[in-house]
């Protein structure tokens, strides 16, 4: 439990701060999805992936590719749950594509990455999406897919000087500043009488 604080009393009993007791707006799961959504907006998007395969595959292969893309989307829906909209599902599908395009199995790293992004997820959905991504990229040259993903992935933090970058900051904090240690053996502030020389 948090230690009692003066500012806690001020927030509770005075009228000088915003009276708003609901703290959590977003939990970890919705934050993970939001991050994925932002990432996919910044660079690689589901639309770009579908366009890429539409442009680079033969007509006969395109029908199969469409099926595989659908499977990836379905797996993404299973992983994020039914409470989220198309945009979130597509961003999750982008994440699955990016996770699996260079591998042919759901290994430890891939499982950890998905869990970190979405929390607990059905393994079957990961297996299905991994296999679908594998079939999707198999007619293509590996380096071509690699180049496409890299080109579409932009840095997350804007390349701009951050405020405060050159401001000196100290991590010093207030520490206990006491004058004396506990006077063991004292009674009412007077010297202790643990022994006596008064024989």
């Amino acid at each position: 439990m948090a230690p009692p604080r003066l500012t806690g009393a001020l927030r509770s009993f005075s009228n000088v701060s915003k009276q708003d007791y609901t703290e959590d707006i977003y939990d970890l799961k919705s934050k993970r999805l939001k991050r994925q959504e932002l990432l996919s907006k910044e660079g690689l998007t589901w639309q770009k992936i579908t366009q890429f395969f539409g442009q680079h595959l033969e007509k006969g292969e395109q029908r199969i590719a469409t099926e595989e893309l659908k499977k990836i989307l379905q797996a993404a829906r299973q992983i994020v749950g039914t409470d989220f909209g198309q945009e979130t599902v597509e961003s999750a599908a982008v994440f699955l594509f990016r996770t699996f395009y260079g591998t042919d199995q759901v290994g430890h790293e891939e499982t950890r990455a998905i869990k970190h992004m979405f929390g607990p997820f059905p393994c079957s959905a990961a297996d299905v999406s991994c296999a679908a991504v594998g079939r999707l990229v198999s007619p293509m040259d590996e380096t071509q897919v690699e180049a496409f993903v890299k080109a579409e992935t932009t840095p997350r933090v804007p390349d701009r000087a951050s405020f405060g970058r050159n401001i000196a900051f100290s991590f010093d904090s207030y520490a206990l500043d006491y004058l004396e240690n506990l006077p063991w053996g004292d009674e009412d502030g007077h010297p202790g009488h643990g022994f006596s020389l008064d024989f």
């Binding site: 500012t7 001020l10 701060s17 900051f169 100290s170 991590f171 207030y174």
Partner: peptide, 17 residues
């Protein structure tokens, strides 16, 4: 900013900054 926030800032950062 409000008074509790200003007090929090002082106690968290005041020693070194």
């Amino acid at each position: 900013f409000d008074i509790p926030k200003i007090l929090d800032l002082c106690v968290l950062y005041g020693k070194g900054n």
